[in-house]
Design a protein around this nucleic acid. Structure first.
Lengths: 236, 236
DNA sequence: ACTATCATACTTCCATACAAGTCAACACTC
DNA sequence: GAGTGTTGACTTGTATGGAAGTATGATAGT
């Protein structure tokens, strides 16, 4: 889902439109297609050697996901990052994952703990080597929690939420204190293992508030990627 | 959003595809287009006097929303209700709205309370007259809370979640204890007014667990609308 | 009676042509 | 020079024909 799809190759056996959707989505989230830049149906059609129609259909789904803005008869543009959307998404995600770890801590599972600790080692190993890869591992970590809580289905609803947050992270890796994030992961695992549901929830909420620290700085460093003013969003 | 769009005329000035998306979405959520029933691009194109392309584009977005299932070269079908999707969505929504009222109760706003109490009266007045209209008012109630909490943006992320839950409610109004729901609304408002954040959160969680009571009964009464449970399943 | 093959009528998916709106450049009028 | 209308090259939106795949039923063969 978050894979790097630079080496795109369309599989001619499968439908083209869904493949284009995944490829373009990856290129936008990874900040390879810059916010406010123009995307032309015809140009992309030529680039991928297909007709305009499948490109167009990919555009439509990506607009629905909040990554593109289609202005009829005007053009299609990569949507600038809307701070309120990021903050709103972050709120949803915090609420969701707080409940997830709260549930998990009430019935700790040793095999889950073992798996999570294994992932922590991977994260630490890759941290200074390949930050983009760390983001993938981070996603796996959180998804593992959701699946363990038995609500894999629910995790899918957060796709759009994660996309908006990931866009911010891909703009500037250096602004994110990866080792802090990993330490927070460790704390969450600890609290789940201890069976302290409230503490686990607090750890997760603190963890997911981390982006609030870096977001203003990133917005200041890269104002060209953002749109509108960052209003205030209340947080628990 | 949830409006009844039975007698809807296409506005020829605006793009057709988005209008079709809204119309079809409404017809599916309101259970006018039955689960597992077949939708044909050509038929709908004739029905709305347009070409197949805009119909197709509407299909694609609705599939992405989990309301349709497009089987290539086979047909397009209204997706049967997946209980796990409903439960997962319910989980997300409970987590979200619990945090919303928790925040609201920490800084009670008298004008908000007044507005909510006014809505409660409306709900009570319509309860026995028009259950479909009550669902609309219910949506307004919850949305009002989200907006008051300053996270209108986040509310948009829950569109798909609400759609799945609403489908269940539209299958059978009688299974839902509307007066109980209204009483729960009242309790939530009370606790916000009292400034008791934890109690407000508990009330909201109890309220959003109400669907768990009726879901099994509805599934048993209308197995043909659900996937993978009780209905005649023709698996290979 | 039973099975395999093939014709046919569907379906979605893609390519192409055209329609309609937008915007910038440019000539023209005042 | 300032303002205005026009042209033309763009854009996305829609219509339509055909390609490829799938289900169904008739038919031939055993």
């Amino acid at each position: 889902m978050l894979l790097d799809l630079n080496d795109w190759r369309l599989n001619p056996r499968k439908a083209v439109a869904p493949q284009l959707r995944v490829i373009l989505r990856s290129r936008i989230v990874r900040n390879q297609l810059k916010p406010s830049s123009r995307l032309s149906e015809s140009d992309l059609a030529k680039e991928y050697q297909v007709s305009r129609q499948p490109v167009r259909e990919a555009f439509i789904t990506l607009e629905h996901e909040g990554l593109l803005e289609i202005r009829p008869q005007r053009g299609t543009f990569v949507k600038p990052i809307d701070v309120n959307s990021v903050l709103g998404g972050r709120f949803v995600r915090e609420a969701f994952e707080a409940d997830v770890v709260h549930n998990l801590a009430q019935t700790p599972d040793t095999s889950l703990i073992k798996e999570l600790r294994s992932q922590l080692k991977e994260q630490a190993a890759i941290a200074d080597v390949n930050p983009a890869k760390f983001i993938e591992l981070d996603e796996v970590f959180h998804e593992t929690l959701a699946i363990a809580a038995g609500i894999e289905q629910a995790w899918g609803y957060l796709e759009a939420v994660k996309a908006q947050m990931d866009r911010v992270r891909f703009i500037s890796f250096v602004e994110f204190p990866i080792h802090t994030l990993i330490a927070q992961h460790g704390q969450i695992v600890d609290k789940i293992e201890e069976g302290d549901a409230d503490a686990a929830e607090r750890s997760m909420r603190r963890h997911l508030k981390e982006i609030l620290n870096s977001l203003p700085r990133i917005q200041q460093l890269y104002p060209q990627y953002f749109a509108g003013g960052g209003g205030k969003v209340n947080d628990p």
